[in-house]
Nucleic acid binder design. Structure first.
Lengths: 153, 153
DNA sequence: TATAGAATTGACGTAAACGTAAAAGGTGCG
DNA sequence: CGCACCTTTTACGTTTACGTCAATTCTATA
């Protein structure tokens, strides 16, 4: 099998497969490329999110795996659980219009968007409360003479 | 010991202690009053955040416990861990100016505020990314003829 | 060939704040 | 008396996304 030898991932000048795009990378390079750990990649595979080919026991990641990983990372960035991501990816059918997949994704996305907006509201609430408390505490500190003020337990 | 009989927490007309403010409530009422579960109150006690008196084995919460619980809940609302809350409350000294406590609280608050702002930024980022993705997906759904578009794994 | 650098599987550990039984004791009331 | 209701302690379970060994094997290079 053709591997990209370590250290020349993008600069392989020899041993190029007939069809361009048949490029395999091993787990280490894959991890570096996407800023994740080996453990993460194995974990995703264990959860059915990735399916790299094998050369014996060595994992070989293809362009397809890279695309999937990108999606996973995007999903995580916007707050989806891996379960959700898997659910959506599992619906992918390369031979169809993927209407179902897209609908599911849109549905989940709407809910997730709502969650995110709620979270943002909560955080803004927290920021305000905390700012207020800080003002009070600062006041108490400058007026050094308020032993039993309201905010001490 | 004087208890508030169940169902008339605020309307106890008899058996009033000489000093007003010596009012004890049991765990059930305490929980209801502050919207937490019994488990939570016991948990907080186990973690050293609360210290109700006892009548035999029954917990009796005083005004002081209520104040502390309020602080705990405020702390949690603004995102402090229970550890942090405990650290801050442990510094309370009813006989001093509590300068140390206030300084610690302020210090922790500043850090927490920074965390919250960072979180908010992340969430806003996520909201934007998600919104963009949704736009793309909607487009793909209306133009029902894009099998291998970019966002399918 | 020796040694370092990747890779593998397996499996327990972590964090946070409780949830959820289980088994039992106390109390007021009709 | 009996039943409902409140309370107690003990202790394992939950959730999510990996981290962190451990023991071993494979490969590449000096």
């Amino acid at each position: 099998m053709k591997l990209v030898s370590p250290g020349e991932a993008a600069a392989n000048s020899n041993d190029i497969p007939a069809e361009a795009g048949e490029e395999f990378v091993r787990i280490g390079e894959m991890a570096k490329k996407y800023g994740v750990t080996l453990r993460t990649l194995r974990f995703y595979e264990d959860k059915g999110l990735l399916n790299p080919k094998r050369d014996g026991s060595t994992r070989l990641y293809t362009r397809r795996d890279k695309a999937r990983l990108k999606l996973i990372l995007l999903g995580r960035k916007v707050g989806f659980s891996l379960r959700d991501v898997k659910q959506m990816m599992d619906l992918y059918d390369p031979t169809g219009s993927n209407t179902k997949q897209l609908r599911l994704a849109l549905d989940k996305s709407e809910k997730q968007l709502a969650r995110l907006q709620k979270q943002r509201a909560l955080i803004e609430d927290a920021i305000n409360e905390l700012s207020n408390s800080m003002t009070v505490v600062r006041r108490m500190l400058t007026e050094r003479a308020a032993p039993q003020a309201s905010a001490a337990g």
